[in-house]
């Protein structure tokens, strides 16, 4: 299936959930969806006999005015690629966890929670993954302020020119 055929197919199957759908470089298709519909869209992408997608990557991004979560899916039997994107509001970034559909997303979503502070409702173990549990803030946010101290350890570097 070519890119435009996949776009037509997804348009038919997901209909109202789609905000925009377009071609992406590297033979990919970018589909932006409403965040409430994430579970139903993922369910269709996984179980439709002509799509059969499995997940390969997930990330979050701070766009300044909002947050976005991005899922890269790949279909092993048909070799299609699709990128699913959902925008979240800046005050309370929250979205349903897709862990119930793709088990492997457990750690990916924990990492996004850890580094960007996006909450995944329904996640079985939403704890920090890479940073220590007592770390404050979420470093990949654009407004993140580097801490001077962590547990009395000085993070500041003396200026060698002084």
């Amino acid at each position: 299936m070519e890119q435009h055929e996949l776009i037509e197919k997804v348009k038919v199957t997901c209909q109202d959930s789609i905000v925009r759908i377009e071609e992406m470089p590297n033979d990919d298709v970018l589909v932006e969806i409403k965040k409430e519909e994430i579970l139903s869209v993922m369910d269709i992408l996984k179980n439709d006999p002509e799509l059969k997608f499995s997940i390969s990557n997930h990330l979050g991004v701070d766009n300044g005015e909002n947050y976005a979560v991005i899922y890269n899916l790949y279909s092993y039997p048909f070799k299609h690629k699709i990128t699913v994107k959902a925008c979240l509001d800046h005050e309370h970034p929250e979205i349903d966890s897709v862990e119930s559909i793709f088990q492997g997303m457990n750690w990916f979503e924990r990492e996004t929670y850890d580094l960007l502070g996006i909450k995944f409702t329904g996640h079985s173990n939403l704890k920090r993954l890479l940073l220590p549990p007592d770390w404050e803030g979420h470093p990949l946010r654009k407004d993140y302020v580097y801490p001077d101290f962590y547990n009395q350890i000085d993070n500041r570097r003396p200026d060698l020119c002084d």
């Binding site: 590297n26 990330l59 991005i70 890269n72 690629k81």
Partner: peptide
């Protein structure tokens, strides 16, 4: 935006 994967010794490494 672009997502590219390559086959590394430990499996695919993807850069988004």
């Amino acid at each position: 935006e672009i997502y590219v994967r390559t086959e590394c010794p430990r499996g695919e490494m993807g850069f988004y």
